[in-house]
Structures are given as structure tokens and as C-alpha cells.
Computed example of a mutant assay.
Amino acid sequence: MRNFEDDPSLQDLLTDDQLQRLTAGLSALCREPVRIGTDRSDHAVPVEFNLETVGWLSGGGSDDERRAAASLVSFLMMFVAKYRLAANLHHDTTEASYAELQRQNEALRASEARYRELSDQLQEKVDEQVALIKGVQQDLYESAKLRSVGQLAAGVAHEINNPIGFINSNLGVASDYVDELQDLLPDTESNRELLADFRDLITESIDGTRRIARIVADLKTFSSIDQADYTLCDVNDLLRSAAHLLQTNYGHQLEIMEQLAEIPAIPGHPAKLSQTFYNVLDNAAQALRDGDREQADQRIQIKTASNGEEVLIVIQDNGCGIPDDIRSQVFDAFFTTRPVGSGTGLGLTVARDTLHAHRGSIAIDSHEGSGTRITLTLPAH
């Protein structure tokens, strides 16, 4: 909209439509038609605006009619100009207000962006602190658990080893006594059956004491109560101990096949590695229990290998497998598919953290209904 900083023309003040309507109205008031234009003709009178001639009015029945009509047009154009001036002032004020609002809006957006960035930074720091606290809590939990296992193993080893030694020694002596009794007793059918049963009982008892001694030895190896916190570890021995303890826990009903290659001892924390191997094997045993295979077809396979730079441990089962919708959650702390009270949901979490602490890795390949293959990788140096 024009601000009339320069002298306006007739077209600036009146549009063509307005000029036609005005001409028609004036022609109706006068005896003869009236014409308004920018060209001067005979008997035309000037149409003025602010003392400047902006057009010429011709026609009409007399000079008085033309002058009156020209005066009326000038009068109307003055109000048109005032309206334009007020409209322009309102427009300029509105534009200035809009520009100020735009500036304030941009400033508000910039401030909001800064606060959002600060909020994101604060959230990152909070998340880092929460992760650190969770890690410390996990380490404390794991350390307390390992200490409890170590104390239990130490107590079992101390309290059981000596009595088992006495029992085993006495059973050996009793076996010798049976041989002496055979020479002293009459050679009758009943005596032979009695001595044969006695020898079988002693043999079974000796086997039982050896099994108890082996369990105690496995428990000592599992908890590493006789070793330093960080030392060279025989991965095969740790796997055997974990497998034997798991079989004992499941009543020797698990079939665990071992294909342990000759691999180098690796530096690590034996108790934590034993716990890791046991957790993975226990998950495999649970998968077999939850699967739909016959017990005779259930099996767990343990393999080890080394390429000189890394030691690979593969633990594979043919159990129920892991459904696709929860496979991404298996390493989440406290996530478990077992019934309430049957599991803590920390087995694979502890295993992953232990592998990472040893600069190793853990990978899971599993499909529902076709078993699970877990590959543990540890550096050989």
C-alpha cells in the first residue's frame, strides 16, 4: 500500500472501479454526464488534492456543476487519503509488531535450543552416573557372590576332606578284612554270598567317597580359593569343574559332551571365569528342561579351540532356543523367562561383563525350537 511520500496521482488515490462508480454517481447528480481523467479538455475544471492538480473533470450542465463536482471529488479524495494514511500506519505498526514478535520468537527458540542442549547434556551425565552406579552395584553383587561361594567351598573342603580321608582309608582296611574273613569262615553258599555282598557294599562306598572328593576338588577349582585373584587360568579345567558341578546339581542326568582341545593358559580371574562358564551351562540345562525333546535326545556340547591369538569356548545345546522377540533382552540385568523365584536374571549379564573385563566377547546364535550356540572369546595373551 502506497504511503504517499511523493505527490500522488489520480490513479494512486482512486482505483479504476472507484473512479467509474464516482463518475456514475456524479453524472446522476448533474444534468449532463461527467468525465474525470488526466487529460485536460475544453471547459474542464481541475480536480485538486493538497493544492495539486491530479486530474480534470469535464461534462456536466454548467461551470457551476463542474466546479461543484470537482470540489466533491477533491473532498472525497481527502478522506480516501486519510483512510489510506490510517491504514498504512496500522500496517506499519502491525509489521513492526510482527517483526518484533519474530525477533522475540527467534530469541525464544534459541534460548529453548540452549536449554534443550543443556538438558540433554545433563541427562547424559545422569545416565552416565546411573550406569556407573549400576556397574558398581553389579560388581559389589558379583564380588559378594563370589566371596560367598569361596567361603562355602573353603568350609566344605575343610570339613569334608578330612572325614572323607578317614572313611576312604577305613573302607580300604575293611576290604582287607573281608579277604581275611573269607579264609576264616566256612566255605558255604550263604557265606560266599554274604562276603560278595559285603565287597560290593565296600566298593560302592569307596566310589561314593571318591565322588565326594572329586566334587570338593571341583568346587575348589570353581571358586579358586587356592589361587590368586588374577593369574594364569586353565580354561579346560575350569570348564570341566563347572560341568561336573552342574551335573551334580541336576542329579547326574545331564549329558555333557566335551571336546576340549589343547589350548594355552590365559591370564584372568579364575573364579569369575568359572562363574561365567557355570552360568552359561546352567542356561543350557534350563533350555533342555524347557524343551520338548525326550531326555535321551537332550545334550550339551562343550568345545574349546585356539588360533594362537584367541581362545574360543563354544557351549551348544539342542533345547528350546530363544524366541525372536526376547533375543535382544537376554543380556539385560534381571531379565529372566523363568518362574518367579527360579532365577535372578543376572547369569548372562554377569557373563557378558566378565568377558568384557577380560577383554573378551560373547555371541549368541539361537532360534526358537532349534537350540542355542554361545561362543565365548578370550584373548590368549
Rank of each mutant, 00 (worst) to 15 (best):
S328G: 06
L118N: 05
I302Q: 01
R84T: 06
L72M: 10
A217E: 14
H381G: 13
S223T: 07
S97W: 11
Q275F: 12
Y83L: 13
S366K: 02
A174D: 01
E100Q: 13
A69P: 00
Y115H: 12
P163D: 08
A154Y: 11
L76F: 05
G165H: 08
G165A: 10
T372F: 04
L273E: 00
R211W: 08
F4K: 03
A44V: 06
I160D: 01
G308C: 07
A363G: 09
D127Q: 13
D353M: 08
A96I: 06
I315W: 02
M257Q: 12
D92H: 06
S74R: 02
R214Y: 08
E48P: 02
G251F: 05
T188W: 06
L140N: 10
I133F: 13
T93E: 13
I212P: 03
A131Y: 07
G165K: 13
V330Q: 06
A70T: 03
D226S: 13
L14K: 02
R109C: 00
M78E: 11
S342V: 06
G165I: 00
L26V: 03
Q286I: 05
H356K: 15
N236C: 10
A242C: 05
Q316L: 01
A357D: 14
Y115R: 14
G268E: 02
N307H: 07
Q18V: 12
A174C: 05
A213R: 08
N249F: 06
G345H: 03
R31N: 10
Q20F: 03
S41L: 07
Q182T: 12
N283E: 09
L273S: 01
I215Q: 12
H90P: 01
L108R: 09
L29F: 10
Q286G: 05
I302W: 00
